[in-house]
Computed example of a mutant assay.
Amino acid sequence: MTINFRTSVDALAEQARNSAIGDPERRCIVSSGSVHPKRRGDQSPIPRLELFHFTMSICSQKIRGALFQIGAPFASSELIIMPPFSENYSAEYVKLRMASAIARSRPFVKGYSGSSSVENEGFDPLAVPTLVDHEKGEVVADSRLIAAYLDMLSGGALVPLQWQNRIWNEIAIVDTLPHAGLFYGANPDGDDRPEEIRAGMRGAHDKKIELVRKRLEGLPADSLLREAYRHKIIKEEAGREFISQPANMRRIIEATHSTIVQLDRRLESKNEWLMPDGFTLADIFWGVSLFRLLFLGYDWMWKDCPRVSEYAERLFASPSMQNGVINWPGHPPGERIERFKKH
């Protein structure tokens, strides 16, 4: 699917917004620096940037953090991606996502390793986040590409030129962490996830597969979207099998722990952030990642990593984390994260 005109992108975004998002309250305008989205009336102008996202999507959290860091106002079009809603399975939303360059250049997702990295897993056409630049008529999918796009718009505020290689190396490390597996799957040696998450993830893959199949059956026989939905089913079937194997869960838990230990070694005690010159996109990605691990009960991973422990405290207090993640409306409560919320 090729999109050539800005009006076409605008139309795709409007169709996705109106068809996929069931509650108008989740169509909001977020002003620069404000964590309190204001509902967008039907006649309200849309800012240049529009983000299709979900509260608890870790990739969405990275992009919200980046948007707050550069101070860019944006239209918040918030989908609920969990069953029974699964608004990201709407054909109108998938059409919008398929208008991105990455949808034309990368193969569809075809497996599961616990990570949501496009580099390793392939492109998921039924996922979030998706950014629309209404001024340029661009659709950007995949959190790393969206972050790079926002950095370009901000003139390098997120990824300073002198630290480009180091920052993108850190982001690549974060991107391969198996957050999806840790969220959906239980630790076979003691599940410390919040009860709400444990209950919600039971049978989640089965529910998602059923809903994707229903959407697929409703598509016209000649629809270009059918292959996208088939690959989503392949991914969810592979995910269901993956998290059911205790050996897989132990392996990704150990791999994540090892990555945290390596981060502790890279952190320099004299620096407040990862790069000597200040807060960057690498810190946003790590902040979101560490906060998710904390929420799921994996903060024991940095119990013996004093630099990571101190770094996490600083990250969680940063404005981009506070606004884009911790205090973003709808984040489920949890005993471990409550002290970081600013009321």
Score class of each variant (00 low, 15 high):
323 N>Y: 06
73 P>C: 08
169 N>Q: 15
117 S>P: 06
230 R>H: 14
22 G>R: 13
235 K>R: 11
34 S>H: 11
77 S>I: 07
190 G>D: 09
20 A>V: 04
10 D>M: 13
16 A>E: 07
319 P>W: 03
283 D>F: 11
325 V>F: 12
316 F>Y: 13
317 A>M: 11
117 S>V: 01
131 L>W: 10
184 Y>F: 14
114 G>Y: 04
244 S>Y: 01
40 R>D: 04
71 G>E: 08
119 E>A: 14
2 T>G: 13
150 L>H: 06
107 P>C: 05
323 N>W: 01
27 R>H: 08
110 K>I: 00
171 I>E: 07
192 D>I: 01
134 H>G: 10
239 G>V: 00
261 V>A: 12
155 G>S: 10
138 E>N: 08
107 P>R: 11
280 T>Y: 11
320 S>N: 06
277 D>I: 11
246 P>N: 06
314 R>Y: 10
278 G>D: 07
317 A>D: 14
205 H>C: 14
176 T>M: 10
17 R>Q: 13
163 W>V: 02
167 I>W: 09
151 D>S: 06
274 L>R: 05
301 M>C: 10
174 V>L: 09
257 H>S: 12
204 A>M: 15
257 H>G: 15
71 G>W: 10
2 T>L: 13
48 R>I: 03
339 R>D: 07
101 A>C: 02
75 A>N: 06
332 P>N: 07
172 A>F: 04
241 E>D: 11
